[in-house]
């Protein structure tokens, strides 16, 4: 069984005795740092683009989404890895789906209690973590062939890589689209825009003097609020990343 999963996924199982290895050594650190840039789930592996892009018009929901995915990705990898030797191969997809769906239900109920406004905003996209390809992809490619601790780290690493892109896209879209950051959260910041009776912006474009008076021409970019903007922002990220690391360039 272990051999066949090895062949199928191309990931070599780590069969060396565990006590000789440090609990968090260099190899484990790579599991976390590699998916952040060089093997990023979104820009390189193209997994999990689905459920995420629509929530990135504001930073705060993206952050909540990122935390939810890290949680689900890490724990589902851990549980799948613990059960990897007793899951029959024929029904492994269903078992994985049930594990993921259970965790997502937990996140969903927790969010409903803790942060109802964000829960409303994310609507169906929390449920869609179930079909998020990164979670499933990591279970198939890594957790089914590796020990629990390493699988857990791999899950966390991939969740973080995904969250990084999500929050980065959120920052760009909210800053240029609305002139604010973290709107809707306790630490909401209003960066740029005309101050009114209710809101006070850091750079007040309506001001007569000070820094703000140089920004009288500034207007929010409404394109950034549209869903399509997320595609452009990610395309630019991919462009930048691949120009620096030419190994990643698509030859076809």
């Amino acid at each position: 069984m272990a051999e066949s999963t090895e062949l199928k996924t191309g990931v070599v199982a780590d069969n060396r005795p565990e006590e000789k290895q440090p609990i968090f050594g260099k190899k484990e650190a790579i599991l976390i740092t590699d998916p952040l840039l060089d093997n990023n789930p979104i820009t390189i592996q193209v997994l999990g683009v689905c459920s995420a892009l629509a929530v990135t018009s504001l930073v705060y929901p993206s952050l909540v989404m990122a935390v939810a995915v890290v949680f689900v990705c890490g724990l589902s990898s851990l549980f799948t890895s613990l059960m990897r030797n007793i899951i029959p191969k024929a029904v492994r997809l269903i078992v994985q789906l049930v594990i993921i769906a259970t965790l997502v239900t937990l996140v969903n109920e927790a969010l409903k209690v803790l942060a109802f406004p964000v829960y409303k905003q994310l609507s169906v996209y929390i449920g869609l973590i179930i079909t998020n390809c990164i979670v499933m992809g990591r279970l198939e490619a890594f957790a089914m062939a590796n020990k629990p601790w390493r699988s857990f780290l791999d899950g966390i690493g991939n969740g973080l890589g995904y969250g990084l892109i999500l929050v980065a896209v959120g920052v760009v879209r909210e800053l240029f689209g609305k002139g604010s950051l973290f709107a809707g959260s306790p630490i909401a910041l209003n960066i740029i825009g005309p101050s009114g009776a209710t809101t006070d912006y850091l750079i007040n474009t309506a001001a007569e003097s000070g820094i703000g008076s140089f920004f009288g021409w500034y207007a929010n970019n409404n394109l950034m609020v549209l869903p399509a903007a997320a595609m452009f922002v990610i395309a630019v990220f991919i462009w930048i990343q691949r120009s620096y690391n030419t190994k990643l360039v698509d030859v076809s």
């Binding site: 193209v46 990610i234 991919i238 930048i240 030419t246 698509d250 076809s252």
Partner: peptide
């Protein structure tokens, strides 16, 4: 650097 995935986006 834009070939493939970047263009698709």
């Amino acid at each position: 650097a834009l070939r493939g995935l970047g263009m698709a986006f």
